[in-house]
Amino acid sequence: MKIKEVKELETKDLVERIESEVAKYNQMKLNHAITPLENPSQIKLARRDIARMKTVLRERELNK
């Protein structure tokens, strides 16, 4: 997910999206520990997407 797409989301939607992405990320890590994923770089991409979303959310909190 690009930063432009993240900035277009509403704050409420962004919070929900972060929660779902974190759950998906944790499940991916757990699955990878049991049986290796076909593409382990997905874990890295998911972590970076979560960081982007949290960064935009924090920017919005500071600009209020």
Rank of each mutant, 00 (worst) to 15 (best):
M53N: 02
R60N: 04
L62N: 09
A23C: 01
N39Q: 12
Q27T: 13
L37S: 02
P36C: 01
N39H: 12
D13W: 02
I43E: 05
I18L: 02
R48A: 14
A23V: 12
R48P: 00
Y25T: 06
K54E: 13
V22D: 05
K12C: 10
E59S: 10
L30P: 01
V15R: 13
L30F: 11
Q42N: 10
I3G: 03
R47T: 01
V6R: 03
Y25L: 13
I34N: 02
Y25V: 07
V22C: 08
T55M: 13
P40Q: 04
M53Q: 02
T55F: 12
M53I: 04
Q42A: 10
M1A: 08
K4H: 08
A23T: 12
T55L: 14
R60F: 01
E38C: 05
K29V: 04
R60Y: 01
K2L: 08
K4T: 12
K44M: 09
Q42P: 00
K12R: 14
R52P: 01
D49T: 09
K29L: 15
I18K: 03
L57F: 07
N39C: 05
K2A: 09
A33R: 13
T11M: 11
L45N: 08
L45D: 06
V56K: 02
S20H: 03
L62A: 12
E8D: 15
R58C: 07
L45P: 00
L45Q: 10
N31K: 12
S20D: 11
E59D: 11
E59C: 03
K64H: 15
T35M: 12
L45M: 08
T35N: 15
M53Y: 01
H32Y: 01
K24I: 07
I50W: 05
I43T: 01
N26G: 05
T55E: 12
E8G: 06
E16C: 08
L14Q: 04
M53A: 01
K64Q: 12
H32K: 03
R58M: 13
E61G: 08
E19C: 08
E61L: 09
R47Q: 13
Q42L: 05
I18S: 04
E8I: 13
A51L: 06
K7V: 12
I3N: 02
L9P: 04
K64I: 13
A33H: 08
E5F: 03
N31Y: 08
I43D: 01
A23Y: 09
P36F: 03
N63D: 13
S41F: 00
T55A: 15
A51P: 00
E21I: 00
L37G: 03
R60L: 06
R47I: 00
M53D: 03
R52G: 08
S41T: 06
K64S: 15
N26Q: 15
L45F: 00
R17N: 09
N31R: 10
K7C: 09
A33G: 05
K4Q: 10
M28H: 03
L37H: 01
K29Y: 06
N39G: 07
A51V: 09
S41L: 11
E21N: 12
R47P: 02
E21S: 08
M1G: 07
E10I: 04
D13C: 06
K24C: 10
N63I: 11
I18F: 05
K7T: 07
A33C: 02
V6Y: 03
N26S: 13
I34H: 07
V22R: 11
H32V: 04
S20W: 05
I34R: 07
A46K: 11
Q27P: 02
R52H: 08
R48W: 00
V56Q: 05
K24N: 10
T35C: 08
E16Y: 07
Q27S: 14
